[in-house]
Write a protein that binds this DNA or RNA. Structure first.
Lengths: 145, 145
DNA sequence: ATGTTAATGCAATTATGTTGCAAATATAGC
DNA sequence: GCTATATTTGCAACATAATTGCATTAACAT
């Protein structure tokens, strides 16, 4: 099996992006986490390895290319997660449910849970559905017990 | 029928809030619009009638009392709409679908559309559901034709 | 190896949200 | 109506988040 860094490099090239240190680092961090990652957290982890501005631009480029997708938590903070393979710049397939834990504030992508179809009033044309559930995640529920 | 301002004054008193000019003005503006209203828009419309800080505090107080509810649009900007009558400080009944128009960027509260029940993985406890649809609203669809 | 383009880092700017405090104002009690 | 009191406002300062322009650096095609 090819290693992770190689996969990331291919991913960048495929999307016409040069394989630079900050970009690889962002992919490393995001892939190593089980939930969506906030911009502030990324900024903190990367420290002085990359400028704050660079981070913004990396995230923006990744989002445009469909490499990552953005989820806003209940506070309006941007959180990022690597898209499933089906995504591209032209078409995002990230219509799964996101779960925002009130306790640990993690955001989980519940890929397994599909967003149900929706009836909207006449005239409205739905392009995307964005369903965010809030509550207590499995990990936090366990800790209480 | 009692007039609008009287209704608003009663609403404030009922919630233990004094009837001040900025608060009434916010209620006026929100009630006069068919979609949720962004903080920046409110700030612009109110101009020098009220300080920016006051606006933040008015919105915060209203939200705590259940007079308005906040919806974040796809950019993470806060938008506010007056709650339906069932809401109070203790219990928000705003789990209807919000529709974010990609064209005019209005946010509609589709009170008629209920958020469907959801199956989540074991261990997760859902408290609230927040469903935002994006697309083209009825008004913008009409204009194209 | 080198030229070209893309990407980064820095500085400056703008936007957005918060806190503390003094002055102003709503209203309850007289 | 007047006064006391607690709330609310407005200002100033601060804190945080995000954007822009530009010079330098680095990737990679040739």
């Amino acid at each position: 099996m090819e290693n992770k860094t190689e996969r990331f490099e291919k991913l960048l090239v495929k999307n016409g992006l040069k394989r630079t240190a900050p970009r690889l680092q962002v992919l490393e961090i995001l892939s190593g986490r089980d939930s969506a990652t906030s911009q502030p957290y990324l900024e903190q982890v990367m420290g002085k390895d990359a400028d704050r501005v660079t981070l913004y631009r990396v995230l923006q480029a990744f989002e445009e290319k469909g490499i990552i997708h953005k989820v806003l938590d209940q506070q309006g903070t941007a959180n990022y997660a690597i898209c499933s393979d089906g995504c591209s710049a032209h078409e995002h397939h990230d219509e799964h449910v996101h779960f925002n834990c009130d306790n640990c504030h993690k955001i989980y992508c519940l890929d397994a849970v599909k967003v149900p179809a929706l009836k909207v009033p006449a005239g409205f044309k739905v392009e995307h559905l964005n369903l965010i559930a809030t509550g207590i995640c499995a990990s936090c529920s366990d800790k209480v017990n």
